[in-house]
Design a protein around this nucleic acid. Structure first.
Length: 820
RNA sequence: GGGCGUAUAGCUCAGCGGGAGAGCACCCGCCUCACACGCGGGGGGUCGCUGGUUCAAAUCCAGCUACGCCCACCA
């Protein structure tokens, strides 16, 4: 014992001390040559610029509970930590720093800017894994990896080369989501949608032969300058005669064909759609299929471009006003009304996305997706909860090409070299010369890869892939990936695809999609809303164990409100555990722990521990951490403290050898079961156990045999508990003659029947309480009798159910009689 | 527009085919030699609404309402 155990458990100091000790003793370390079956989880690499938030805390807790449980069961556990370089996010952070000095990245130039990012990371980045420590996360901190580490970077480039070899990679000018502020393309998954109110403007396009006009509707008036066609649905009876004729785009005065395309919605607007391949994804597709020109009037800065003529350099809002004014003058404005619709925003900076045509690298995904669909269909990869697997499958079955290039400076530079002769060489290392013309003047592609392109390799690039390392052979495939719902597609799907393609096996078997933690009022936790709760502050105030318990407790549903009540419950559990340990240790001191029970309360608690363990293991295996928390709470409070400890106390005082040994055994077992959820307080108490060497973190998890549950003892105790409640409620104690002597002793002990009453305040039978109890029993008896009188129930319900009802009726009648 | 989820005690949630539960809050009684951050007892609920299936529905099915999330090329 390091210090006398105070009645109030204070996690502060204790937790930090154990975090340091476990680490220094190397208990988190995983070695390829260590014994035991491997159990592997890779922590979702947080952004290098990030700080621990509640989602990380929940996810870290879930993973740590699993990892600690498996470690105790003798698995060779590897919980791999690390960081994601987070290309666009990190670049934005450093650009903001520069902006404070009035500079842009272009003032520094590419090399100096990237150098600046590294410096920034050195000073301010990479703090979050350290914050995981305060949660008690038993990560192998020595294995910290970064997606921009040298070895990891080579893996990323090797992935791209492989895709090229497979023929899935291609470069093309296509329409992409362009963020004018970040000045880069982003993937569909990095676009967030927000509802806004714009104007829906209906514009008359005169027919070239002067025979009338066709009216289109748009929310983006300025883009009419880049219109190249008007499309109608071929099945639209209103427009059948127009197809093949020519319309004139107002302002631009351009003659464009009227074409038919089934993707035009007959119901929407006027049923006629202006086609602008340069500024709309659907129009782009229609344009390519109909061989239409691709005009542009908006530039990469989001402003009207030179092609917009007189409006060049103006904002789209200005252009909108100006064009509407002119249309009105010309009598071509048919209608203009407010219209609510969804617009795409950049996930990182909130800027409105411009669909623009640009030259990018794309990867066709169908062949990558096919095996990744199969492994989920076949159950080789399972989602928890299972419905999330359907979400995954739906997306995978409709997968679209992935735009992997980004016009950023911070990231993995695309390993493609261009020669003036037109040759493009895809290679991990810079080629010495052009294979086609022999020239040595090669230019590397300026762009970098999507940050998710590198995260996709996390489960095996961290183990040394593409090299055939001992780690890779030992620790791949892994077992569990626990993550947030919003990155199923961005990350989980791509890991499964890359693992199957590059290593030939799934990266993990179970995908846990954990809850989204909402603020206590049900709103999203966010800094800007002021609804965020910092887990570090919660840990500092209530302790890591309490926080872990609380997070487990609330982790059951898809969305869950953060609750201080759940944390508080965890704190009370830690305190309760601490105090019952003080009780047992103060008596049992140097006894040798034993779990071969003699007396009834011992047989009972040993049985309870076993059945609770069984339920606990079921809960853990099903990733039902809320159930795990519930079980541990009731096991500790109700079973161990309120009943076992109360019952055994007099025997402990008397120095009964069996009681001393068993109570220590019970305590040890309880600490073992609690350790995965509450590692610090349990380790602290464990270290106070006399003559107990070693650490709880690596202690043996008990194995259960067939006879570990004593149903008889549990039944007798249940009867004792009922009688005690009846007495406490009514002051009346039924005859005990039919009770086991041990049971009578326990009842007398917990009810303190052998103690003299104070101040003559002897509590006699309470007539009202007794009457109430009688009424309750009468009701139960009537209900059971009615059921058994129901012939359909007796004949159709399962026999054991009918028997159970008979047993209940007997018991109720017995108790009713006892109350007379 | 498609998909998913949630509606049970004042609050946060469990239960998911046979006696309405937990924690917190509330009321009453206890400083009982582990813990007053504790112990014991108690009050409080047409289990969102409407139908259906069943001997039996909080629990299964259908529809409705409200809220939340994800996906989506209706301009």
């Amino acid at each position: 014992m390091t210090a006398p155990m105070e009645p109030l458990y204070a996690p502060q100091g204790v937790e930090e001390r154990w975090q340091r000790a476990w680490d220094e003793e190397g208990l988190f370390r995983a070695r390829a040559d260590a014994p035991g079956d491997p159990y592997v989880i890779a922590v979702p690499p947080p952004n290098v610029t990030g700080a621990l938030h509640m989602g990380h805390a929940l996810n870290g807790t879930i993973q740590d509970v699993l990892v600690r449980w498996h470690r105790m069961r003798g698995f060779n556990t590897l919980w791999q930590p690390g960081y994601d370089h987070a290309g666009i996010a990190t670049q934005n952070v450093v650009e903001k720093e520069l902006a404070k000095q009035g500079k842009t990245r272009h003032d520094l130039g590419r090399e100096a800017f990237v150098e600046r990012v590294w410096e920034w990371l050195e000073e301010y980045g990479k703090v979050i894994i350290g914050q995981f420590r305060s949660l008690g996360a038993s990560l192998d901190y020595e294995r910290e990896r970064f997606t921009k580490d040298e070895g990891y970077s080579r893996a990323v480039l090797a992935f791209l080369v492989r895709l090229h070899q497979r023929g899935w990679l291609y470069r093309d000018s296509r329409i992409v989501n362009w963020c004018p502020r970040c000045a880069t393309a982003i993937s569909d998954l990095e676009v967030v949608h927000e509802h806004v109110v714009d104007n829906l403007t209906s514009i008359r396009y005169p027919l070239a032969d002067g025979s009338g006009s066709v009216t289109i509707a748009t929310v983006r008036v300025p883009t009419i300058l880049a219109d190249v066609a008007v499309a109608v649905n071929p099945d639209d009876p209103r427009y059948g005669a127009l197809v093949g004729r020519t319309a004139i785009v107002p302002i631009a005065n351009r003659e464009v064909p009227i074409i038919a395309d089934p993707r035009v919605e007959i119901e929407f607007g006027t049923g006629a759609l202006k086609i602008t391949p340069g500024h709309d994804p659907l129009d782009f597709e229609i344009g390519r299929e109909h061989g239409l020109p691709e005009l542009t009037v908006i530039g990469f800065d989001g402003l009207m471009s030179d092609e917009a003529g007189a409006l060049a350099g103006r904002s789209q809002e200005d252009a909108d006003r100006e064009i509407v004014r002119q249309l009105e003058e010309q009598g071509l404005l048919a209608a203009r009304e407010p219209y609510e619709h969804a617009v795409g925003l950049c996930e990182r900076c909130g800027t409105r996305i411009e669909p623009l045509i640009s030259l990018q690298w794309f990867c066709d995904m169908e062949d990558l997706a096919r095996p990744a669909i199969e492994v989920v269909e076949q159950g080789r990869v399972r989602f928890h909860p299972a419905q999330q697997g359907e979400v995954y499958l739906h997306w995978m079955r409709n997968i679209r090409p992935w735009c992997v290039s980004r016009q950023l400076w911070w990231g993995h530079r695309i390993p493609v070299w261009y020669c003036d002769c037109g040759e493009a060489i895809v290679s991990v290392d810079r080629p010495a010369s052009c294979g086609a013309c022999g020239a040595s003047e090669l230019r590397q592609d300026e762009d970098v890869l999507d940050t998710w392109f590198s995260s996709a390799l996390w489960p095996f690039a961290t183990l040394g892939w593409p090299d055939d390392t001992a780690d890779l052979r030992r620790f791949y495939p892994g077992h569990v990936n626990s993550t947030a719902r919003e990155i199923i597609f961005l990350w989980v799907a791509r890991m499964i695809m890359s693992g199957l393609e590059l290593v030939g096996d799934v990266p993990f078997e179970d995908v846990i999609i954990h809850s989204t933690v909402l603020a206590p009022d049900g709103r999203r936790m966010s800094k800007s809303l002021g609804t965020g709760i910092d887990p570090l502050e919660v840990i500092a105030a209530h302790g890591a164990d309490a926080t872990r318990y609380g997070l487990c407790k609330i982790s059951s549903t898809q969305d869950v409100r953060f609750s201080y009540g759940a944390i508080e419950e965890g704190r009370k559990l830690a305190n309760k555990l601490w105090n019952v340990s003080r009780l047992i240790l103060s008596y049992a001191g140097d006894a040798a722990p034993d779990l071969r029970p003699q007396a009834l309360e011992e047989r009972w608690i040993v049985s309870r521990l076993a059945s609770a363990q069984r339920e606990l293991e079921t809960g853990l295996a099903a990733y039902d951490f809320a159930e795990v928390a519930r079980l541990l709470y009731h096991l500790t409070f109700d079973d161990v403290c309120d009943w076992y400890a109360e019952a055994v106390k007099p025997r402990l005082r008397e120095g009964d050898a069996d009681a001393l040994a068993t109570s220590l055994g019970v305590l040890e077992r309880l600490l073992t079961l609690l350790h995965p959820v509450m590692p610090h307080v349990t380790e602290e108490i464990w270290s106070n156990l006399p003559g107990r060497g070693g650490r709880l973190i690596v202690a043996d998890w008990p194995t259960l045999d067939e006879g570990s549950v004593d149903e008889c003892a549990e039944a007798v105790l249940a009867r004792v508990q009922e009688l005690a409640t009846l007495y406490r409620r009514s002051g009346a104690l039924p005859a005990l003659d039919d009770l086991d002597p041990d049971a009578q002793r326990i009842l007398r002990t917990v009810l303190r029947l052998d103690r003299p009453a104070k101040d003559g305040k002897e509590r006699g039978p309470d007539a009202a309480a007794l009457e109430k109890e009688r009424a309750r029993l009468d009701k139960e008896i009537a209900r059971a009798e009615a059921m058994l009188a129901n012939e359909r129930f007796v004949s159709r319900a399962p026999a054991e159910l009918v028997q159970a009802e008979r047993d209940k009726l007997d018991r109720f009648r017995r108790e009713r009689d006892a109350l007379r």
